[in-house]
Amino acid sequence: MSPLTVAVPTGRLLHDAVRLLERAGLHARGLGDDRRLLVDLEGGARVLLARPTDLLTYVEQGAADVGIVGRDMLLEQGRDVYELLDLGFGACRAVVALPEERAEQLWRPGHALRVATKYPRLTARYFEQVARPAEIVVLYGSVELAPLVGLADGIVDLVMTGRTLRENRLREVAEIAQSTARLVVNRSSLSRSRRTAELVATVRALCVQEAGRAGG
């Protein structure tokens, strides 16, 4: 029997993801503190650390049984994995943002926007749906820079507090999607690996507990 492999994303979801695994009985404390990317845990489980953009590839191809990933990545990449649980943490929104002083002028219907984003598919789908013409510039780093230097009219990006937008004099004009962290599972692991099913059940129970506490 191969060990249970859980893929955990580096970056903004790491802390909460590790905390969740701890509560689910996988002792992953200290994960991400050093440079190890594959960490064996007690009891034959292991955790692999992956960039959020890569994580779904590991789960889809079966290199990991279970993963934790933002809904934004699921919407962008459209992979063949089971999205089973909304974990509640890592809340953020994907929005269209334009330079404050020109927002109204740029957002008028019929104006062909140049949009910089790390989410080309999500962005293209949105502009198709609202029937606005748009040209997409794909960037991998800080997209807020693009409108400041004239590379694009505006951006599509994730916002949590809106602080980055304000600091770069950008204003949200439309919300494209809301995102939280999700538990995703490889299709065949769910049927073939008992430990995967057990972990899903444990995390589901934790989520219900959490929701009960939040509701009460």
């Binding site: 809904r71 699921l74 063949d80 089971y82 909304d86 999700r182």
Partner: peptide, 9 residues
Amino acid sequence: YRRAFAELE
């Protein structure tokens, strides 16, 4: 079709 079970609710 997207197997997005978490979003059914």
